[in-house]
Design a protein around this nucleic acid. Structure first.
Lengths: 183, 183
DNA sequence: TAGGGCATGTAACCAGTTACATGATTAC
DNA sequence: GTAATCATGTAACTGGTTACATGCCCTA
């Protein structure tokens, strides 16, 4: 889902700054979606020129002006168009798994570290999913459904890692011992 | 995981053509990794020039020469370097979930289609994971572990979709009825 | 006869990532 | 002191995606 459509979608909740849009996406759907701040600001600026969003600049001390964006009628149209264009793909790209597959070429202990890090990240995301903090999920069935999907898949992943890491780490250690002994 | 490292990794199994490398990745780890043929061929050509891989051209009738690539010693080093460089991230980017979140703006029936398509794709991937066809998984603990992780997460996702799609579709239909009625 | 599998390549484009740039405030 | 939060922006890079290009053989 491209940055523009995602921004427009988030703005259907109500006015928000670029910063807030990014936070909203991270907090609610961080496992599935992502917007980096360096793509969000240009996207909002472009869409503002095109009349898809409007903003009100709010003075702040010591900080840049805060630009509170709001969806326009043509912005809503653009959102619908953007959604229609999207084929609805779902892709996982995992260096984590890539590394595991070739774990025999990794230094000792790396597998443990990788799994620890992955568990920590996934548990964090799981916690976010478990306490839906605000209005967004309350009145939005799609958002609730998505958060549930996130939790289900994360839980399965976490449990799998917890239950199976021991034999993996043992097997890798054994392989590496063999390689050292055999060479 | 970048194309080059992935190719080198697959070649540790034994010689293969670009076409076979792509297939191997798709069949075993398609849920987690991806290589498009238009990035694999240039990558192999580059690495061949750099001495990371060697190939033997095999004549074929009616088809382009088949180039059977083999890992060299420096290719193995490059693989290890590549693996060390990788931070082991795991990212999901899902237009599917993006669309569900904003399902209220989707035409009627689109949610059902999206979920059907997603289920079909995930079930296909699940089947692949369930019958590990060849040697790669047999002697490679990391590969077996990864395939198991894939199956666990896919199963959770599939079950969630099956169990919860009804209330989502009902809620979306209701929302849309309200919008039509209220406008 | 249409589609899929085999088999390799090139070229343009573009979206997202990384890094650069600033700066006050608050909490540990 | 140092990191995090708030808050916005620019610019270069670069890797992957899409589309173009070819062509035989087999199956439904």
């Amino acid at each position: 889902m491209d940055t523009r459509t995602l921004c427009l979608g988030i703005l259907t909740r109500g006015p928000a700054t670029g910063y807030e849009i990014k936070k909203a996406v991270e907090e609610h759907f961080g496992y599935f979606l992502d917007v980096s701040h360096s793509s969000i600001y240009p996207a909002l600026a472009d869409m503002s020129e095109q009349g898809l969003v409007e903003y009100e600049a709010v003075r702040q001390e010591g900080k840049p002006d805060k630009k509170v964006y709001r969806l326009t009628a043509s912005g809503l149209e653009a959102l619908v168009e953007g959604l229609l264009r999207s084929p609805g793909r779902h892709r996982v790209r995992s260096e984590f798994v890539g590394l595991l597959i070739f774990s025999q070429f990794l230094p000792a202990g790396r597998v443990r570290d990788l799994i620890d890090k992955r568990l920590a990240e996934w548990r964090g995301l799981q916690d976010l999913a478990r306490c839906p903090p605000d209005t967004f999920s309350n009145d939005n069935a799609g958002a609730r459904f998505s958060v549930g999907l996130c939790e289900a898949m994360l839980t399965a992943g976490i449990e799998y890692l917890e239950r199976n890491r021991d034999w993996l780490e043992a097997a890798v250690a054994e392989d590496q011992a063999k390689q050292r002994g055999g060479s």
